[in-house]
């Protein structure tokens, strides 16, 4: 009896097995095994921050097309090191970059110039009459960046201003590409002094549009050494590769647009994030 059983199952197995073996032989597909292995090394969040459709696609691009291995931001230094070891190349690690919205003009500081009626999306709002905020550079607060963020690190405050929570940011850079007003920048995580304004308008115009705008007074540039803050027309720009003593610069800004983000803004409240998503 046991013999029958074994024979029967074994026989069926044998027939099926040989059929499969034949199929595998005639229908074989050649695949670079490294693609799969590299995909396993990647974090697998499929955020698309590297510019490819998911981790698998990026791994393919690295293995087959020789694309650089530094594009995976969420993976951080660890993934980079693993990838470098796997691909046999030198890794150069940098500091973690986090996104920051360079605008401090919330609804108390920067008034609106008309009633916008339409889709609640920054790109759409920006295209209608140039955006409803009087300041044509400021954050519109229609949460396009927050929707683009794969990890919910961007909060739209009650006063219609986008704020990045650096501790949640995975440096994918999606928000940077989404913002129609190009207000979001990637900066080293350890830096705490930022010019929270992106308005290139002249002082008087800025003053009319926002209470915390950069009026181009140049005072800050004189507080720092080695061109750590430079002027782009009427806008002060922090050069993040040069050191700044944040505590000394921030209080000197007459427009109150240089802020010291140390300590960083309070962590996101759970409920708040849910409401925005």
């Amino acid at each position: 009896m046991i013999l029958y059983t074994t024979l029967a199952i074994g026989g069926i197995g044998l027939i099926c097995g040989s059929a499969l073996a034949l199929a595998a032989r005639f229908l074989a597909v050649h695949e670079d095994p490294r693609v799969e292995e590299l995909t396993a090394i990647l974090p697998g969040v499929n955020c698309g921050g590297c510019g490819y459709a998911g981790c698998g696609d990026y791994a393919k691009a690295v293995v087959l097309d020789g694309i650089e291995i530094t594009l995976c931001a969420p993976g951080g230094a660890e993934t980079l090191a693993n990838m470098a070891a796997f691909m046999g190349v030198e890794a150069e690690s940098g500091e973690k970059q986090v996104a920051i919205v360079l605008c401090g003009g919330d609804s108390d500081q920067a008034p609106r110039q008309f009633q916008y009626n339409g889709v609640a999306d920054c790109t759409a709002a920006h295209a209608v009459g140039g955006g409803d905020k009087k300041c044509r550079y400021g954050c519109l607060g229609y949460s396009s960046c927050a929707r683009a963020c794969p990890v919910g690190a961007i909060e739209i405050t009650e006063k219609n201003l986008a704020v990045v929570h650096p501790e949640l940011c995975i440096s994918c850079g999606k928000c940077v590409r989404t913002c129609p007003r190009h207000l979001i920048k990637m900066v080293p995580e350890s830096r705490h002094a930022h010019v929270m304004c992106s308005s290139k308008d002249k002082g008087p115009i800025v003053k009319k549009a926002c209470k915390v705008g950069c009026i181009g007074c140049r005072i800050c540039t004189k507080q720092v050494e080695d061109d750590a803050i430079t002027m782009d027309g009427f806008l002060a720009i922090v050069n993040y590769d040069k050191p700044i003593e944040s505590a000394t610069v921030a209080p000197k800004c007459p427009g109150k647009c240089i802020v010291d983000t140390d300590p960083p803004p309070a962590p996101v409240e759970e409920e708040k994030v849910e409401a925005e998503v």
Partner: peptide
């Protein structure tokens, strides 16, 4: 997904602006 008219607009004389 649409921003309704805000009740607490700072200036009362704001025009409504929308797409065509």
């Amino acid at each position: 997904m649409v921003e309704e008219q805000k009740a607490e607009t700072p200036e009362p004389v704001l025009n409504v602006v929308s797409t065509s």
